[in-house]
């Protein structure tokens, strides 16, 4: 039986002033988490499986035009709208503050997908295949999801677990920066900082206190674990 309380509350800080929109994190996430390869048709149907997307917004008109990038993954809401609606507890809250997803349990009602205001839940409409020998790239750390189930960003829970076990073996807590989700690890601009928000001295917790901090769709009261830092500048044009 696992402990019911946890010294960890995992969170992510996304600095929009650093993010260049490059998309490295998207591929990192796909590589780390056995995220399906979706062909053009599938994406045209609105069934892309990426767990992390870079939203790109145009603001203004030429020449006074800007672009805003917004990386969006599961916000691991502390009051997650996706959790209570799941009839089978496939979407659940774990003691570390993560929104977990039990693929085997999911019956595919897609109710959670509707109720996730961030639209980060992706559903396996297809049975995805990796043509041989591409399947060799699949990570043995996580399952390959069958058709009919919902999936989404897990904050790279397999990485958390691995470090947790190491730390447990050494009889200590996880050190700040010891866990890095794939997206944060690769981000060239270091726009993504992952860490334990329960530790006020962690890098993530310190960044989260920035006056630039805000949460996505804050007004809904979902209390996300992802804190965004506002992008600055971009006031001059011409």
């Amino acid at each position: 039986m696992e402990k019911l309380t946890s010294p960890y509350k995992w969170g992510m800080v996304i600095d929009l002033d650093r993010c260049t929109g490059c998309g490295a994190c998207v591929v990192a996430c796909q590589a780390e988490n056995n995220v399906a390869i979706c062909d053009k048709k599938e994406i045209a149907e609105g069934r892309n499986m990426h767990w992390l997307r870079i939203e790109r917004f145009w603001v203004g008109e030429y020449p006074d035009v800007r672009v805003r990038f917004l990386p969006v993954m599961c916000q691991h809401c502390h009051d997650a709208p996706c959790e209570p609606v799941c009839p089978v507890y496939a979407s659940y809250h774990n003691p570390d503050g993560l929104n977990g997803q039990v693929y085997n349990r999911c019956v595919g009602t897609r109710y959670c997908g509707n109720n996730c205001p961030y639209a980060v839940r992706v559903f396996n409409f297809y049975q995805h295949e990796w043509p041989k020998p591409l399947e060799n790239q699949l990570s043995p750390d996580i399952t390959v999801r069958p058709r009919g189930v919902m999936e989404k960003c897990s904050f790279c829970i397999q990485r958390i677990r691995r470090v947790k076990e190491t730390a447990k073996g050494e009889g200590r807590l996880i050190r700040d920066g010891e866990v890095q989700p794939a997206c944060a690890q690769t981000c060239p601009a270091e726009a993504l900082t992952f860490g334990n928000m329960a530790d006020p001295e962690s890098r993530a917790a310190r960044l989260a206190r920035s006056p630039r901090g805000f949460q996505l769709l804050e007004q809904l009261g979902t209390h996300p674990s992802v804190i965004y830092l506002k992008g600055g500048g971009r006031e001059h044009v011409g």
Binding site: E2, Y89, N94, G100, V102, R105, D141, T143, I157
Partner: peptide, 15 residues
């Protein structure tokens, strides 16, 4: 309830 009932995070086996 959940962690009590189901052990590890589903399908996660850090190798």
């Amino acid at each position: 309830l959940i962690p009590y009932l189901i052990g590890p995070d589903e399908g996660v086996t850090p190798g």
